[in-house]
């Protein structure tokens, strides 16, 4: 209910660096969807949020998902809403993409592809890291 009023989550100028690290494929477990919902909710706090996709987490962003046959909600379009929530820093680990035969063109959103080494640096700079 609080998000109906702008400023309720005003943290008085204290902006922390939050990183969500997604490591799970989208439909076999509930982790990917739960993590996405957490990102959307936390966007109300207006922190410096970034989302990283590594390991099977890169599959969350795969184009062409059609879940009609398995009776589950296809939540891949929701990643495209993140920009409107001011969550614009999306990172994908290069090694994870390559191991799965994927390229940036296979993904539903624009991302920055980072090597494990670059991502490791970025993770180390965070105030809070939430991994799922």
């Amino acid at each position: 209910m609080e998000d109906e009023f702008e400023g309720t989550f005003d943290t008085e100028g204290v902006i922390k660096k939050f990183m969500f690290v997604n490591r799970k494929a989208p439909y076999g477990t509930i982790y990917a969807l739960e993590s996405l919902e957490t990102v959307l909710i936390s966007a109300a706090f207006e922190q410096d949020t970034s989302v990283a996709f590594v390991d099977d987490g890169v599959y969350q962003l795969k184009k062409g998902q059609d879940t009609t046959g398995i009776n589950m909600k296809n939540f891949s379009p929701t990643y495209r809403a993140l920009e409107g929530y001011d969550v614009e820093k999306l990172y994908v680990e290069k090694e994870s993409l390559e191991a799965r035969g994927l390229t940036e063109d296979d993904l539903v959103v624009d991302v920055e592809v980072l090597s494990a080494e670059e991502l490791s640096e970025l993770m180390d700079e965070q105030d809070v890291v939430l991994s799922a």
Partner: peptide, 29 residues
């Protein structure tokens, strides 16, 4: 085209391999 491809390809000579279509489609394959 994945790192598991060679394993599956080799195994497909020794087993009858099947994959469930609706689960492929859900995952964009």
């Amino acid at each position: 085209g994945t790192t598991a491809t060679d394993t599956v390809k080799a195994a497909s000579n020794e087993y009858s391999f099947y994959v469930l279509g609706p689960d492929l489609a859900a995952r964009g394959i």
